[in-house]
Amino acid sequence: MTEDSFNSTDSSTDRNANTDARADGGRYLSVDEIPETAPVADRTWSERIADAVPSKRRGLKYVIAITIALLWIVPFIGLVMASIRPLSEIIGGWWHLEGMTITFENYYQAWNHSTAPMGQALRNTFIVTIPAVLVVMLLGVMAAYPFARFEFPLKRTLFFLILLVMAAPPELVAMGNYNALREFGLFDTYMGLILVHIGWGLGWVVLFLRNYLLGIPKELEEAARIDGASRYQIFRTIILPLSTPALVSVAVIQFTWVWNAFFFPLVFMRSPELYLAPQALPLMRGRVQVEWGLIAAGSIMTMAVPVILFLLLERYYKRGMVAAVAD
């Protein structure tokens, strides 16, 4: 149906149009919406195309931008290809597509690897990451609240210490924590690693949430005080709900950090059955020939969790990243 047929409608074609509309799932206007006269095209076809297609310069810009972005992920494309092809094809070059065999054997083998079983390693990583994130969020927002709202002794000193820890490399706390965890009997345990991650993450989380809490209007808390709420009620019913967006940012970033961490597990987890996924990956290399397929499959499984989390909560991740360093 063209625009012209709308133009010459009498009542019978109206009816047709109407039934057509029902048959075609609402693709056409219903009778009473059909105007008496045909709509006058205010622009010609060539003008519309010219508008829809960017100018030559802009077109070139798009081509460059898309090319760069694609080149940027070529290494990851290679990783995916390697993970689903047999070793012989990988060594021949994953970019050769003819005679490609798709197999999930690498994933199966990586999952059940003898020295570095990814299945177990991923489970261990979850066991460490989830509590380390949840506890940091709760304790972080609790500690950030006084930093944002109250005066108390040593506040500036504590502030300085937090900044110092944020600048420190993780290696700097390894020796002290190694001895401390041995002392407490927590060395080579989930709990030990979780505690180290919590202590390490609290610094930036407190600073980040403090900056966010400073943006919540004071009047809301004063109104709540007048309404009769105690400090704890204010915290629970006003501050916590209002800081949800910041807490989501904290959750995503801290999750990524703990999940991806390699150095802390390397130092504090020594029993092979407790290895975390990033720690297990380098163990898959094999003796004679590097087992690219296994490494690729293991890498994909390990990185899938933070990457998916990033794609789902991209907005919070990016906003948090920017706020954490720029505020």
């Binding site: 972080g140 006084p146 820890v165 700097l172 002290g176 924590n177 180290v196 407190v206």
Partner: peptide
């Protein structure tokens, strides 16, 4: 509000730095 977070922070971050 402060003690739970700050004590973990002190034990596992500040303490080890001082120790080093």
């Amino acid at each position: 509000f402060l003690i739970p977070g700050l004590s973990l922070f002190a034990i596992f971050s500040v303490g080890p730095i001082v120790y080093s």
